[in-house]
Amino acid sequence: MTETALGHDAESPKLREAYTAMTRTRQMYGGIVLIVFVAMMTSGFMLADSRNAGGFWGGILNIFIFPGEVVSEAAEKVALLPALMVKFFPSLIETVNIAAASTLVGALAAIVLSLLSTRGLARFPRLIPLFRRLMDISRAVPEIVVALVLIFVLGGGPVPAMIAIAFHTTGALGKLFSEVNENASLKPIEGLASVGASWTQRMLLGVVPQVAPNWLSYALLRFEINIRASAILGFVGSGGIGYDLKNAFSWGQGRYDEVAAIFILLFLTIVFFDQLSSHYRNKLVGKS
């Protein structure tokens, strides 16, 4: 006892030294990382500032001019706003439809792809890397790329946006779904296999009941994201409320009441579907 205690005592200054040295290097590394980060942020900001048409300090003073114009014009014509909102409501429905359809199509494709690319569940285990790469690529494609190309072929309208968002959704959800699938128990599948169920039957009856709540919850989150995406794509050229916003916007002053009406509609829609989806997501994940 005494020996070990003594030995400990003899070692402790060395230990302490090593410990302080380690702490010091850590602090140094932390400091270096912090300095590099701050340098990157400031230089990046200055670079962005210099490559921008209007500078930051000039712009920050003007930041309330445009919202001010919109608000003051909307306030003047406040009686017209409800009528305008009714006028733009069909476009809003289209935007929500684009989001819903693309989430649905994307989720269905993601289900198939994720089942095909999960170890233990895959129909063709050798092709797992292929399906994974497919998901990676479709996840990496920004919606605007597909949308712009499809607008050239199909003309404007909701379908190019729908396909574009569905394409990205497939990859994004596919990755999340396959993570969920990996946690599914294999026992029901083995049971089904032992009674001679086909692959489709094993998946439908063995896997889907286990993972459906989590799938649904991710799909709802995607739906929320896709509403925003479909509004943005409308602005770039496909249908929906984004397109109306762009038109109202390009009319310039005098039509800002329309801009205000669309802003309000869009804001309310996004908040509404945010709340709805987070409510159901909590319910789904709480239940499972």
């Binding site: 921008n52 048409a53 209007g54 500078g55 930051f56 712009g59 920050i60 001019i65």
Partner: peptide, 13 residues
């Protein structure tokens, strides 16, 4: 849209 009105086109916006 709001920011591009104030800052103009570019990476800062």
């Amino acid at each position: 849209i709001i920011l591009s009105r104030a800052f103009g086109p570019g990476p800062l916006t």
